[in-house]
Every structure is written in structure tokens, then in C-alpha cells.
Design a protein around this nucleic acid. Sequence first.
DNA 1: ACCGTCGGTTCGTTCATTGAACCCGCTACC
DNA 2: GGTAGCGGGTTCAATGAACGAACCGACGGT
Lengths: 175, 175
Amino acid sequence: MALGKDYATQECSIASALEVVGERWTLLVIRDALYGVRRYNDFLVHLGIPRAVLSARLKTLTEEGILEKRRYQESPPRDEYVVTERGIALWPTLRALALWGREQLMDRRLRYFRHADCGTELGPYGECPACGTVVPAADVLITPGPGLDPDPADPVSRALLKPKRLLEPLETEHV
Amino acid sequence: MALGKDYATQECSIASALEVVGERWTLLVIRDALYGVRRYNDFLVHLGIPRAVLSARLKTLTEEGILEKRRYQESPPRDEYVVTERGIALWPTLRALALWGREQLMDRRLRYFRHADCGTELGPYGECPACGTVVPAADVLITPGPGLDPDPADPVSRALLKPKRLLEPLETEHV
DNA sequence: ACCGTCGGTTCGTTCATTGAACCCGCTACC
DNA sequence: GGTAGCGGGTTCAATGAACGAACCGACGGT
């Protein structure tokens, strides 16, 4: 999106944000990263995204400081992509978008976002109605809802059937 | 984005939302609509968007129930695009995105979002820190910040130099 | 020696975006 | 009554991005 064909005339922080995260697939990559996905192949099978596009997105997200590429084993050399503070700061945006999609477009509940400390479902602005506090991303528990396919094909979706915290790395079946 | 080339494999309300509002320019059109822009030509000059793309976006946003096309004079026939409840429901998402862009990407303050009743700047989750309530879109006051160009070229930007409420129709100089 | 896996790159085809040109209904002006 | 202008579009050729399939290289297992 950048490189000349950007939202140049816009003097606006929304336009700046969209230059970084507004391309196709980008927000879904960040969503997966917040859900705990870290490996190239897990992004690939879970998103169903072309490999070239995934490589490009991971590259620019790394350059923008939203993901961090780090080596987790030496032989064979393997890297994982971990979401940074800057990426975690997008959680309120993604939560708001998920809420809009659920209320305006969907007929069923796919996932619940809860406060990990007390299990209460988050309110419309990301707060815990029981505790009265705003819940940081690391304390959000994702639990499956009734509309979710109980036997999905890909290993990432299967791993997401168990309740887990945001940011916590996802344990995929290593075949 | 729709029509076959969508995020078909994603079982997720974020993906559903992005199928509707995830295309290039779409969220900026909605931002302008929330700021009070209603006329084709105002969108056109303020966004600097190709006419064909603007027509396409207005069409799909109308079909999706986010904007409503309505005639405001008969002769010559003229229509305006007014944001609906479904579009207003995107305000928390846009506010969160603006906040992220401002804090993570920008060095200066362009606009403040305030509670119209008391003038206090909104907190990170869209609440008024003074009143302790969540502020609905219609009660948000947009005021220019210090980083904003004081003499912009297009009439929409000039009209936005005055404080005004969200949703309130924008008065452009009718040349 | 060979097969499989992970994390990519390359490549031809299809689709979307761009900017410029054109069009239509109408009004105001001369 | 001709014509200039405006709002709100559509059409078109050229460019750029996304797609999917194929290929590749480093390694590990058998």
C-alpha cells in the first residue's frame, strides 16, 4: 500500500494506521498473532493465504515493529514471528471490529472473550463488567462459542477449540 | 473483496467484518461519513479517490446498509449519502484505530475527540473521564489539534477546522 | 540414497485500482 | 436559444497487487 500509492493527501491518524495495517490479509495475520500463532506454516494453513502474500505481510509487519522475527532453534534454522507491544496495542481495534461483525453481520456466536481472572465476558468497550476494570490483552481468555465448527480441518483451528489466553503461544499438533 | 475472492475459509467475525469494510478506501469513506460528509463531490475532493472507486464503494456501502442514499432535492435530482445506525456502530473501531495510529505512528496531534457535554477529551476506551460514561458517537465533539494544517486546500478540510459534532452534516462552501 | 518438512521464491494469469476522458440532466447567464 | 457550468456519475487503457501452482534449499530421519 505504501510506496507512492498511499493515502498521501490524508492528514489523519486513521489514514496513517491504514497505510500500515490496511492491506488485504494484514489484520487477519495480526489477529492470528494475538491468538498465539507464531509459525509460518500455521499462518499459512489457518488463513489459506498465498505463500507470496504471507511472506510479504510478515516482512512489512516485522519492519513496522508489529511482529518480531526470532530464532527458536538452530538446526535446522527456524524462526517464529512474535507480536510486539505495538501489535498488542491493536487489540482494542480488533476487538471492536469483531464486536461489530458479530452484532451487525453474523447470526451466531463463534468465540467469547472473557476476563481470565473471573471468567466474565467482556463488555462492549473491553472492560470486565464484574471487576470494573479494563482488561489488558494478556488477561483475555478466548473460549469457543456455540456456532463454531466442532471438528475443523486445520490444526490451528483445532488448537483454538480449547480455551486459551491471548498472546500465549499456540500448541499445534506436530503431525 | 466479495464475489469468490473473499476470506472464505475464515470462521471469524473479524473476517466477516473485513469482507464488508476491509477494502481499500472503505474505512476512510466511513470516517468521512461520520465526520458529516454526505455529498459525492465532498468525498471526492477530500479523499482524493478515483471517481470509479468512490462510486463502487458508495454502492456497496449502501447495499450493506452502512450508508443510506437519499434524495435531498428534486430538480436537478441530487442524492446524499447518510451514515446509518450500522455505520455509526463502527465508530468504536475507527476511534481505536485512530488512537493506535496517533500513539504508535504519529508525532503530532491532529484532532481531539471530546465529550460535547463537558469538553473533556475521551479516554482510551471511548469514555469520558470526567463523567464516567461511555460517550455515544452523536455526543463526540471533534476539535482541531496543533498539528493540523491551518489553511488546507479542499473545502471539506476547511470546514473541519471548526469544532463540530460527529454525524452533524458538514457545511461546505457552495462556491 | 532417498523422502519429507519447513520456510520460503519465482512465475504466468487474473483481478482491482488508477487517472483521464467522456456523458447526462439540469440551471443560470447572455 | 445557445452555451457554459456543475453535480454525479460511467467507460477505458494501463498499471499494480493477489492468486495458485511449481520449484528450491537446508536439514533430519530411515
